[in-house]
Simulated scan of single mutants.
Amino acid sequence: MPRALITGITGQDGLYLAELLLSKGYEVYGFMRGQNNPKRELVETTLPDVKLLTGDLTDLSSILRALDSSKPDEFYNLGAISFVAYSWENAHLTSEVTGLGVLNALEAVRLYSKDDPSKVRFYQASSSEMYGKVQTVPQNEDTLLWPRSPYGVAKVYGHYMTINYRESYGMHASSGILFNHESPRRGPEFVTRKISQAVSRISLGLQKDLSLGNLDARRDWGFAGDYVDAMWRMLQQDTADDYVISTNETHSIREYLDLAFKHVGIEDWTPYVKQDPRFMRPAEVDLLIGDSTKARTTLGWEPKVDFPSLVAMMVDSDLAEQKRLAGL
């Protein structure tokens, strides 16, 4: 039975990845902060077969203890402070967790596997936010990185450190440069879930309006459940490498609003949506669209859920949740 250790197990990607690995017969260990973590119950309820270990990406010794306990064949480093807007308010903490946390994870794996550098296959969750002020359209594995947020800068550090450990120590360390991927499990602070939640509440008469930032920002949005399959495929390759994971399509916030409101029978969303300067980024990333040709060719991966289906999935999920909460 293969064994896997997942940091960031409480996030949407961690939950979907754990489900995928369990379905493939893995023994799965989840690495999370503190026994009083408010999301611990979510994992225990949703995935009772996952064995939880406590630790912190800023503490190398705790990662080593987790490796000793889990003895994994594969290590998926999904842990990060991942809300981009938060990274400007807490740039130092974001850098420590999202950037230096990768170094700690890599170093822990190196020390644990010192007799066999490829003993544990390592996956690093890189991000399309690394492209920032995009230099080519679409973006692929060779596009110059120009991050526009502390989060993006921290991800660039982790990305290059993963490459460095692969080249310096012969580790089987791969990075997935994942473009925006969403799901009903996305946190409500992220714009896609913020919209789907608000649209469901507005349609039920529970909320009057919705405040957003830049409505013209364009993203390459896919389904998180599809993207974790790409992570697994990377670690099944004989040779480690870096891959862009994307739908190869771009859509604006306005398009997302169109689909979400129409799904609940509202044709004109303009009376319900307000732009608020508080939600504007200090340095905006205007256009992201990936070129995942390499992943499709080498890994045999492709997304299954298209953009309209993703929006409908998220709105339907939030409608059901809001009806339940309101007793409707």
Rank of each mutant, 00 (worst) to 15 (best):
M1T: 15
P2S: 09
R3H: 03
T10G: 11
G11C: 14
G14F: 04
L15S: 10
V28Q: 02
G34E: 00
Q35A: 06
L42V: 07
D49M: 13
A66N: 08
P72Q: 08
E74P: 00
Y76L: 05
N77M: 10
I81M: 01
I81H: 06
W88D: 12
E89G: 07
N90C: 13
L93T: 15
D116T: 13
V120F: 06
F122M: 05
S126W: 10
S126H: 05
S127M: 00
M130E: 15
Y131E: 13
Q135L: 04
Q139I: 05
E141G: 11
V156D: 06
Y157Q: 04
Y157N: 02
G158Q: 01
Y160G: 02
M161Y: 03
M171R: 12
M171K: 14
I177R: 10
L178R: 00
P184H: 11
R186M: 03
G187L: 13
F190N: 05
K194Q: 13
I195C: 10
L212S: 09
L212N: 09
R219M: 13
V228E: 04
D229H: 12
A230D: 02
R233G: 04
Q237N: 01
E249P: 01
E249I: 05
H251E: 11
L257I: 05
H263W: 09
V264K: 09
P271W: 14
P277S: 08
P277D: 14
F279A: 00
E284C: 11
W301I: 02
W301T: 00
W301G: 05
V305R: 04
D306Y: 10
F307H: 06
M314P: 08
D318Q: 10
Q322G: 02
R324N: 01
